[in-house]
Design a protein around this nucleic acid. Structure first.
Lengths: 235, 235
DNA sequence: CCGACTTTGAGAATCCGGTCACAAAGTCCT
DNA sequence: AGGACTTTGTGACCGGATTCTCAAAGTCGG
């Protein structure tokens, strides 16, 4: 039955929903009508059975013998991911990365709006970035409250990361995306994800070594750590 | 026995080695001598049993009743990760992100050296970024060969990502880190990892919705997709 | 309206990773 | 030298995620 049915959605599935979402946007442009799990799998770079199982957690959308109706599925996934509402975001740290993220149209694109940029460095406060002015981190609580910010991005040096995270949590932020190369801990009611450039390269380096040392192909397969699939041969 | 013993190292473990590496660097500064798995776990934000199991895959370094000798372990991990050699890196795409990555001291720090930046846009070719000059993507093969580049970073718009990846592969690159919000496929002898900003935010958004809708704490726990642990309460 | 065909949804089996628990191996104090 | 204590290394267990497989449910042409 097409009732949403509040089952618990496995984390691995949640991590793939954005992939399906993106894939669906692609087909929505060109084609119309429906997609099969097969095609969706191809676009998302995963296997078809997984697509079907993942989607089945959301409820039984999809028609046997036909596939999934693109528009409807798109709607359901975006609802599930909370992309129907707009999430204001604050970026902490105006370094190369912070500035780049602020300028990045890409999540600005879908539902996420960088609403504030703060830094501890008084020299940087007042500077213009994109269409925002850098504000003082001391005003974080006020800023977060006034603009109903729920998501914070940490783009500071490693040394400041934990303290900044603490401040974000105190200010009332409920989700943190950490770009600083440091482990940070947060209370259990706050969600935390991290993106670590150096770590990613080091992982690649590991497999690179393997490749050059041992010869045979197909030795490794990407990394579960990435959420991903790993290198499949070109289809 | 302290023989390296070529066992196969699980992917999940590989993804955590950089964490241990970073943690070890921290203690190497301050303390000296040894660390326990307990302490290492704390610094890396994982649990102690996992640390021990992970390290045991590398061989039995570590002394019962004492812990792990910091310098030695550091050396072993960096050897395993291939950080003893220097990896030249090429960045493709000079947008906000590409430029930020080029400037980013952070992986420049350990073993990874951005040696070339290329773009397809002739207006951008010739521009200075950091201490490099943007080169034409048409010269990619020559550049990769001349400078023995093994790792490529894709920082282009989604629409160009697959083509760029193809060019990188053709040029001889063996590892690719993809920042473009698109699924790309590579032959099986090439390693691929991806970093997707929008995806990360969407995952956070999912859990955010849960938090505000359903109340109880401890509902979710980060994401395996991130490699990570997830929110533990502050210890 | 029937039979061939397509594609989903989900049960079962398998794989992989995480956690627990404890013996083994060492240190250190007396 | 011996006993208490610490900490590693690993075998056993457990749970989640992936893959396989196939019945069920639908479409579509004739």
């Amino acid at each position: 039955m097409a009732v949403p049915s509040r089952r618990r959605i496995p984390e691995a599935t949640v991590a793939r929903l954005p992939l399906y979402y993106r894939a669906l946007l692609e087909v929505a442009d060109k084609d119309v009508g429906t997609v099969s799990s097969e095609r969706l799998a191809e676009l998302a770079g995963v296997n078809a059975a997984k697509v079907r199982k993942d989607l089945s957690y959301l409820g039984s959308y999809g028609t046997r013998g036909v596939g999934y109706e693109v528009e409807y599925l798109l709607h359901e996934i975006s609802r599930e991911l909370g992309l129907t509402e707009d999430w204001p975001v604050v970026i902490v740290g105006v370094g190369n990365l912070g500035a780049a993220l602020a300028n990045y149209r890409g999540f600005g694109a879908r539902g996420f709006q960088v609403t504030a940029i703060v830094d501890a460095d008084v020299d940087k406060v007042g500077r213009r970035i994109s269409d925002l002015v850098v504000e003082d981190i001391g005003d974080l609580s006020r800023i977060v409250e006034e603009r109903a910010i729920a998501i914070g991005i940490v783009a500071t040096p490693a040394s400041a990361a934990q303290e900044v995270a603490d401040q974000l949590v105190d200010a009332g932020v409920r989700s943190i995306l950490n770009f600083a190369p440091a482990v940070i801990t947060v209370p259990s009611h706050v969600s935390l994800r991290k993106v670590d450039l150096a770590t990613e390269l080091q992982i690649l380096s590991f497999y690179q070594r393997r490749l050059t040392a041992v010869a045979p192909a197909g030795a490794h397969s990407g990394a579960s750590a990435n959420d991903d699939d790993g290198p499949e041969g070109r289809r």
